[in-house]
Computed example of a mutant assay.
Amino acid sequence: MKTLYLVRHAKSDWGDPMLDDHDRPLNDRGLRDAPAMGHRLAERGVRPDRIVTSTAVRAKSTARLLARTLGIGDDHVVEEAKLYAASERSILHLASTLDDAVGIAMLVGHNPGMSDAVGELTGEWVELPTCAVVECRVDVDAWCELIEGSGELVHLDTPKH
């Protein structure tokens, strides 16, 4: 049994129109929401073995704030360029390549890919707002066995809940 958390990055700042999309930082709300969601995860006893994040500034910031709040060191946070603007199939493929020593993984990325990945994995279609966290239980022994429909949506949390 594996557990996969799919996270949409926290709210980003659109204030500088000259800034490349990849380089947009979190806004004030995002800087509040990410640690708040981390505290909720900590209260539930969640502690991922690995956090894989898009290389976009807003996703990396979200991942690092979650990790810090959960007491997870930077050595457990891995940046993956393929998560930036990834499709649901790319996201699930990336998850299927995780090391099998990882029992609990968290992927931090972008919509529409993250919302669509939840649907592909679990058959439950949800539109993830910023900083939403979805817990999926995957009935596999090895990540390479992860396929469409192999997961169950266990928990969905958003900053407004």
Rank of each mutant, 00 (worst) to 15 (best):
S61V: 05
R29D: 15
L107N: 10
E148C: 10
S12E: 12
L92I: 14
A34P: 03
L83P: 10
I147P: 00
V108Y: 13
D20E: 14
R8Y: 08
P25S: 12
H39W: 09
R47I: 14
R68F: 07
D20M: 10
L153K: 03
L92M: 08
R137D: 15
A95R: 04
I91W: 01
V138T: 04
K60Y: 04
A105H: 05
C136T: 01
G38M: 00
L156K: 02
A56E: 05
C144S: 11
P17E: 15
D99K: 01
M18P: 01
E79M: 13
E145A: 15
K11G: 09
Y5S: 06
C131H: 05
T3V: 05
L121E: 03
M114W: 13
V108Q: 07
H22W: 10
R24M: 06
M106F: 06
T53M: 13
L107K: 03
S61I: 01
D33K: 03
D49Y: 01
G123F: 05
S90M: 08
V57I: 09
D33R: 00
V133C: 03
R137N: 06
A95C: 12
L70P: 08
T158H: 09
I91K: 08
K160V: 13
C131K: 09
P48V: 07
V46H: 04
A42G: 07
T62M: 14
A132M: 08
T62V: 11
R64L: 13
V138Y: 03
L94R: 07
A101Q: 10
G30A: 13
L128A: 12
R8Q: 12
G30Y: 01
A95I: 07
S150E: 05
S90Y: 03
P25D: 14
C144I: 11
V134Q: 03
A95V: 13
E152A: 15
L146H: 05
A10E: 02
D33L: 10
G151T: 00
S150M: 06
A105N: 02
L65A: 14
T62F: 09
R32P: 00
V134F: 03
V133G: 09
D99R: 05
A85L: 08
D99Q: 05
V7D: 06
H161A: 15
S90H: 02
A117I: 08
S87Q: 01
V77A: 07
V126N: 13
W14D: 15
E148W: 12
H93M: 14
D99H: 07
V134G: 10
V52L: 13
L31D: 10
L94E: 08
W143F: 04
